[in-house]
Simulated scan of single mutants.
Amino acid sequence: MTQRRFYGQNVRRFLHLEHEPPSLITRSLRNTEIAVTETRDDAPVRSLSGGMVLEDSYVVSLKLNDYPSCELWARSKCVTKADIRAGATYLYDMKIDPRFVIDKPFHSLHFYLPRSALDGITEQSRAPRVGDLPCQFGVGHDDPIIRHIGGALLPALRRPTETNRLFIDYSLFAFTVHVAQTYGGMQRRAEPARGGLAPWQTKRACERLDSDLGGKLPTNRGRV
């Protein structure tokens, strides 16, 4: 099955936009693509949003304006209507072919998160793989972390050539970890780090360095 990722031209077709919306993409996690796209249309023509080839992925959407009485579709039929609120975060499972009736101005950030990215995060954290995320049509989450990450990425979306690549990679990595923990229930296993120093060894090393440098190290060693 052909995979279609939710950014760039695919989002333009999905929302019937005149131009390709700006997207930022990272491939820093096992070469898996994670992306964020800003979409906006202040004068849309009434229509049903386009379909997407089904794939094992999620779209986490931060709404930047209200969208009252939104008609939501799944698997080619209307399932509910809901008042979408600005500042709230909504989760969509792309396997059910989510759509909505476009009949009002909209402005959103859409984070594309494939299952492979969640698996990569749990593997790095040596944690069990997370199950399905709690995607409930029309049910938003008050998520200040997503709002802060989205707010930080908005200037980068509007000036991508001026944005540091490390900042994009770190922001989207932090987003993925947050979703895995908050909505997927990921918990890192309490295992000792391999090849690292024991806590008492770290403390002794800091004390030795402090002595050698004449007490010039900062005292908040808990951040070392």
Score class of each variant (00 low, 15 high):
Q3R: 10
R5Q: 13
G8K: 02
Q9D: 15
F14I: 01
L15Q: 09
E18W: 09
L24H: 10
I25K: 12
I25V: 14
T32V: 15
E38A: 08
D42V: 04
P44W: 02
R46H: 12
S49Q: 04
S57Y: 00
V60L: 05
L62K: 00
W73C: 01
R75E: 12
K77W: 10
K81Q: 09
T89I: 05
L109I: 03
H110T: 03
L113A: 09
S116R: 02
A117E: 01
A127S: 15
P128F: 11
V130D: 04
V130N: 03
P134H: 00
F137K: 04
G138Q: 06
D142L: 09
I145V: 15
G151C: 06
L153Y: 07
P155R: 02
R158I: 02
R159T: 12
N164G: 08
R165L: 13
D169S: 14
Y170A: 15
S171G: 07
L172Y: 10
F173R: 14
T176L: 00
H178P: 14
A180P: 01
Q181W: 08
T182W: 12
T182R: 14
M186H: 11
R188A: 15
A190R: 14
R194E: 10
T202L: 14
C206R: 11
E207H: 09
E207G: 04
L209A: 14
D210G: 00
S211G: 07
S211Y: 08
S211N: 08
G214A: 08
G215T: 08
L217C: 06
T219P: 09
V224T: 10
V224E: 10
